[in-house]
């Protein structure tokens, strides 16, 4: 909380639990919907392809992906694994619901990942915010984007 009080007003700091260690920063891509791996993403482009998904057609490549977690097929980890081999993986993952799919997926995507945050990241972080994930320290620092 020290960091939060010392930081600029538009900066918010969360505390959470490390899932995969490391540090990354970038632009947030936020969805309130869970994501399918196999059958839900194109692993060559990092794009969501699921019919009726609010992020259909959007790529998470290079973004800080903020989402509830994984759903669907057990090919989840294999498909996110391939996004890494294809260089279109997200830079980090922030999620709220722990499952074996998301845990293994985050591990093999080898990006910093964090969960069990002390505030709901889905209601605080918005697409376009600048996010620093320091999974080893267990912190997420969000700088809100300036209003357009």
């Amino acid at each position: 909380m020290d960091i939060a009080t010392e930081a600029k007003p538009e900066t918010i700091v969360f505390k959470g639990r490390k899932v995969v260690g490391g540090r990354a920063e970038g632009e947030a891509l936020v969805t309130s919907e869970t994501i399918s791996g196999w059958g839900g993403i194109n692993e060559r482009t990092g794009t969501v392809i699921e019919r009726r998904h609010e992020m259909r057609g959007v790529s998470f490549a290079g973004k800080i992906l903020v989402f509830p977690g994984a759903k669907g097929s057990s090919g989840w980890s294999a498909y996110f694994h391939m996004t890494r081999l294809n260089g279109v993986q997200p830079q980090a993952m922030i999620f709220t619901r722990m499952t074996t799919k998301i845990a293994l997926g985050a591990v093999v995507t080898r990006v910093p990942a964090i969960t069990e945050l002390d505030r709901d990241p889905l209601s605080v972080i918005e697409t376009g915010d600048w996010v620093v994930v320091d999974a080893d320290a267990g912190t997420v620092t969000v700088t809100k984007k300036k209003p357009a």
Binding site: S74, G75, W76, S77, A78, H81, T99, T100, K101, L104, G105, V107, V108
Partner: peptide
Amino acid sequence: TNVEGKES
């Protein structure tokens, strides 16, 4: 069983 993956 949990839903395991290719690696696990």
